[in-house]
């Protein structure tokens, strides 16, 4: 298990701002030669602390692995998320997306591997790394006996921010997310979509450089989803980096410039979205890579005519 970083495939270690297609090398089938090529690259970086320069990825995972009892949830994932990218992580349920993102953001200690945020080791210097990150975890409660406004203020003050800065940013965020009307309502009485939005506001309050969002569009209505998307788009346009996990392929294909397909705790393909989908739609590519898929026969009795 210790050398997961070299044993498992591909991450597209793409420097930011390099639009040149890297070709189907690590994209096509993640097979032998591609694996070796990438692994070497991963190994070379592993022991050294990442140097501070423009090519430091916003998030760099190296051989991250986690086991829960007898089940290996994440089986050595290495990923580079370039600065300024809108990065989608897609995978079937139970693929290890949430576990991976939890280990990347300091919520879950990995058994093996490292995570660096803008060159800062998340597990060696958690406080510094957490200052750079805004997190929207999935399936986590909020302090929902506070009003929406109080919750976002709380998130800001917890990070030691100045009260006046917090106040003006809370007002801006509530306006941008269209929550002003319910600012004084307790979060426990919010709808699912409003709850997601207030959690997003709490993640944005300290103006992080990297935003990690686990299933940000789950149970969110189309209007709110468009609202969230436009905020994320302008955040990326201004130089921020966003990582979203999702299993809505359509959304990821339209929204993200980079994508990683994860299944059974491994990365099956990663890179620029158009390279990963290689001509077909992301959904087709996903089904093709993950396997399983359509089985039309067997339910003949269901035909009603």
């Amino acid at each position: 298990m210790t050398d997961q970083g070299s044993a498992f495939p591909p991450h597209s270690a793409q420097p930011s701002g390099d639009p040149a297609p890297q070709g189907p090398r690590q994209i096509g089938a993640p097979q032998a030669d591609a694996r070796r090529g990438d692994a070497r690259q991963g190994d070379a970086r592993l022991p050294e602390p990442l140097p501070e320069n423009a090519h430091v990825p916003a998030l760099a995972l190296r051989g991250v692995a986690k086991r829960f009892g007898g089940k290996i949830a994440v089986d050595g994932i290495s990923l580079d998320v370039p600065v300024g990218s809108f990065y989608g992580v897609v995978g079937p349920n139970g693929a290890g997306k949430t576990t991976t993102l939890s280990m990347a953001t300091g919520l879950l200690r990995p058994d093996f591997g490292t995570a660096h945020v803008h060159g800062v080791d998340v597990w060696a210097h958690p406080l510094e790394a957490k200052r750079l990150m805004g997190i929207l975890p999935d399936g986590v409660r909020l302090f929902d006996r506070l009003s929406g406004e109080q919750l976002v203020t709380y998130a800001g003050l917890l990070r030691g921010m100045d009260r006046d800065v917090v106040r003006s940013r809370v007002a801006d965020l509530l306006a941008a997310l269209d929550l002003q009307q319910d600012a004084g309502t307790m979060v426990v009485d919010y709808s699912a979509g409003m709850t997601k939005k207030i959690a997003l506001a709490s993640a944005l309050i300290h103006a992080p450089k990297l935003l990690v969002l686990d299933e940000p569009f789950e149970s969110v209505d189309p209007i709110s989803a468009a609202n969230i998307r436009s905020i994320l788009d302008s955040y990326v346009a201004s130089g921020g980096t966003v990582i979203v996990s999702s299993h809505v392929m359509d959304l990821v294909q339209r929204m993200c410039d980079h994508v990683a397909i994860v299944a059974a705790g491994r990365v099956l393909a990663s890179g620029r979205t158009e390279e990963v989908r290689a001509g077909s739609s992301l959904e087709e590519r996903f089904v093709q890579l993950v396997g399983g898929g359509h089985r039309a026969g067997g339910l003949e009795w269901l035909r009603t005519s």
């Binding site: 406080l127 975890p137 302090f143 998130a155 917890l158």
Partner: peptide, 11 residues
């Protein structure tokens, strides 16, 4: 699990 906010904020 609301404790996640404290953990994520690095309190």
């Amino acid at each position: 699990t609301a404790f996640a906010l404290h953990l994520a904020s690095g309190v």
